[in-house]
């Protein structure tokens, strides 16, 4: 039993070490990783439903070059995206706005899941607090009566 508790302790410690390493490592991004990520966040303006990162069209390839160059020039993600919005309009963004109407698309699922989780929590709590089985007086009398005379 003690051994098992110790084993779980080691697992927890190892997990914390791994999680910290991953968290630290996830901070830095290479130029190529950043190009790929931004490519996924922008729509290829001449394709149907493909991102800049996915498309093989010459426009998308040119846009990837621009992204790469802008990253080398030290521009921020926001600046790079703003450049493409200026050229092609809002449609080039594949991620919906976080303000305005966009609140709906980000908020609705989160609200839905939160409300669902809250409801689940409440109902589970109510169930676990309620006594398991409540036999009413009438039930008890019935059982008693049957015990005395099974044929009735």
């Amino acid at each position: 039993m003690k051994l098992r508790t110790a084993a779980w302790g080691i697992i927890a410690a190892a997990f914390i070490v791994i999680a910290t390493t991953v968290a630290i490592r996830s901070g830095d991004e290479t130029t190529s990783q950043r190009t790929q990520r931004l490519g996924r966040e922008l729509a290829c303006p001449v394709c149907t439903g493909e991102s800049v990162g996915a498309s093989n069209s010459s426009e998308a390839r040119a846009m990837r070059k621009i992204i790469q160059q802008s990253i080398k020039d030290g521009e921020s993600d926001g600046e790079i995206k703003a450049r493409f919005v200026a050229a092609y309009g809002e449609r080039v963004l594949l991620e919906p706005d976080r303000g305005g109407l966009g609140v709906l698309v980000w908020g609705l699922p989160i609200i839905g899941i939160t409300v669902g989780a809250g409801g689940l929590y409440l109902v589970l709590r109510r169930w676990s607090r309620a006594p398991r089985l409540v036999a009413s007086d009438a039930d008890e009398r019935l059982v008693e009566k049957l015990r005395e005379d099974p044929r009735s």
């Binding site: 996924r40 966040e41 729509a43 439903g49 991102s51 809002e90 449609r91 963004l93 594949l94 991620e95 919906p96 109407l101 709906l104 698309v105 980000w106 609705l108 699922p109 839905g112 899941i113 669902g116």
Partner: peptide, 30 residues
């Protein structure tokens, strides 16, 4: 919840087009 995310993300462009007459795509990042 997963289904709600996919449903909202898929239908949202229709809503924006109907309300604002603006065409957009909800893509992979969302």
């Amino acid at each position: 919840g997963f289904a709600l995310v996919v449903l909202v993300g898929t239908v949202y462009p229709l809503l924006v087009e109907a309300l604002r007459d603006q065409r957009l795509t909800v893509g992979e990042p969302y």
